[in-house]
Design a protein around this nucleic acid. Structure first.
Lengths: 335, 335
DNA sequence: AAACTTATACTTAATTTGAGCATATGTACG
DNA sequence: CGTACATATGCTCAAATTAAGTATAAGTTT
């Protein structure tokens, strides 16, 4: 216990560090995530990633940028480290004796204009993988039709009473089934719950089940699957982004240089998964000094033309928490 | 570009993953950090850490807990992953051909009662390493006497005008020299700025300077130093904890099972580095349902005896963001 | 008993938030 | 040309929250 600080080089064997990127953009009021098409080995699409090279990469982030530029011909602007994933058996190949992969996950934001489609990378609709997260037109039907009943059954099937209570609390907290307000930031909580209950494809796949089995019967899987644990990384990214919007002006990383206030509002709504009160939204961004008018007018609206605005970068130095601190209105769940 | 997803094992060579822990407690209204005494090789104390063992450790967090228990005989309760550090030359030994260390940093909270002093681990005063962060009795003198002048000089010494402006903005943002309100969460920003300007010991040490040089003349180094980049990890932990207190009831991880409201307030103040308005603080914790009275009375106050309270765990399931959302009053800077 | 320390209840004004009304200014289409 | 419709924008209003007190209670210290 005294010599523990002496030279301790790689006693650890077989660690590989992967750098993974959840690259987000918003086009046509829809949030998108950059995916690479499945290669021969991978049956499902996944996030772009590549191994960290300690000799070539000065920093982790630099390594990530290099990989992404090579794989997708995309130059990343805003990049933020999310989380480092290192649980055993994140990659099923590990069971067969593969090395232990540790992934450092990143969130990156790029503007719509930057999408050059480079071969085998594509923009995937974010809510295709998380259909229960989009409340913009009311409560997602999949919750009432599929998720809620299955979760209730899972709660009831607990063997002991304290266990049942724990399960109920967890369900209520994640999916607000107990009447609480929907918390749009708990994306990861919800995904992990669905995984544990077996409601997402990855769960049964990771458990080694033949996927065609369950799918043959009733539809019990929700949302489209990604390879390995990439959907979990994406859930982490969504939650972080939804939280960050509220206190940092990151939304402007996704906007064109000039935009109308409605375009800005729609972008926030797309990411947040709920609707905003229009007048209050305008009051907020104006009062917080987040934007300034350009004097130009947009003609694209189909109604009264809107003024074009631009982001006021100076706001970062003026206010402690500049961001779109707006309450997301989420229509009450039916029933 | 098409085969990039095929088997790509460790082309990366010489990566070692370290797990580091910033273990925080509060005793006698002072925040403390657990440090391990310098061994022969390390000239300064540092955070407890150990290598990640992919064969033995099921998860990263489990690996961290195992290391800490082994090194300090401390069982960790609340643990949260902070950030993964991988910049080149974080450890000066790397220049001499050592392996590239990547550290996954964690924040852990333990209660005062849990401190068993196990041999060569000690509790260090948190503000000894960051004297400019404690505003509880007004603006720290070190800012006006040392930091502000040095930063101003650094701003003025910029060669180009845009460069000077960038420096000024950065200084104003981090240390609120431009009249803005002090933001107690920007701990990392401030440390990194001081590092870059050369005001912390680690900067000149990492640059290879003989430390006795500078110290011989005027005192230009602020705060006590830690080994390698552990002070940076600690800064990250402080910032995260200060932020988290406001929206999650993590403060109770540091409190005894029952406590008076003033004890609770002092603990929050100790971590936040500022004073709170007493009456509003009580109204807040009561109104938020964070605590409930035990019916018992504390006799230790030296004034009117206070009622003892306990944390209401249920609050987590009731409110979206339970936490001590209180504006930290920071006395205005002198001058 | 007087001075001091801490606890706790209550007041008040300013600010922020949530929701909506009213009106302006354009397009689409009969 | 006129009516319906869509969007933009200014403004009001009540409720809730926040910041900063005053007032009083209930102990300890000297």
């Amino acid at each position: 216990m005294t010599t523990r600080h002496s030279e301790r080089t790689s006693t650890a064997s077989g660690v590989v560090i992967d750098l993974s990127a959840a690259i987000v953009t918003v086009t046509d009021e829809e949030p998108k995530i950059l995916l690479v098409r499945p290669a021969d080995m991978a049956p499902r699409p996944g996030l772009p990633f590549g191994p960290f090279d300690p000799t070539g990469h000065r920093t982790l982030e630099e390594g990530l940028r290099a990989w992404v530029e090579e794989q997708t011909a995309l130059h990343l602007g805003y990049v933020e480290q999310l989380y480092t994933f290192g649980d055993r058996f994140r990659d099923p190949k590990e069971r067969a004796g593969g090395p232990r992969p540790v992934s450092v996950g990143y969130l990156a934001l790029v503007r719509q204009t930057a999408l050059k489609d480079a071969g085998d990378s594509i923009w995937g609709d974010w809510y295709r993988y998380f259909p229960w997260e989009d409340w913009r037109s009311g409560a997602p039907t999949i919750i009432d039709s599929l998720i809620a009943p299955a979760l209730t059954e899972w709660v009831d099937s607990a063997t002991s009473k304290p266990d049942r209570n724990r399960r109920r609390e967890r369900v209520n907290l994640a999916f607000s089934l107990g009447g609480a307000a929907w918390d749009n930031e708990r994306v990861l909580d919800r995904y992990e719950l669905l995984y544990e209950v077996g409601l997402v494809f990855e769960a049964s796949f990771d458990a080694g089940a033949d996927p065609s089995d369950k799918l043959a019967g009733t539809q019990t899987h929700t949302g489209a699957a990604l390879t390995k644990d990439h959907r979990r990384i994406l859930a982490t990214a969504m939650g972080r982004l939804r939280a960050k919007i509220k206190y940092r002006p990151v939304i402007f990383e996704l906007m064109a240089p000039t935009f109308t206030l409605l375009q800005l509002q729609r972008a926030v709504e797309a990411l947040s998964g709920g609707r905003l009160h229009k007048q209050n939204f305008r009051r907020l961004v104006a009062h917080e000094g987040l934007v300034e008018p350009t004097g130009h007018i947009s003609g694209q609206t189909g109604g009264r033309p809107a003024e074009l605005f631009r982001f006021r970068r100076e706001v970062v130095h003026e206010r402690p928490a500049p961001g779109v601190r707006v309450a997301v209105q989420v229509s009450k769940r039916a029933g």
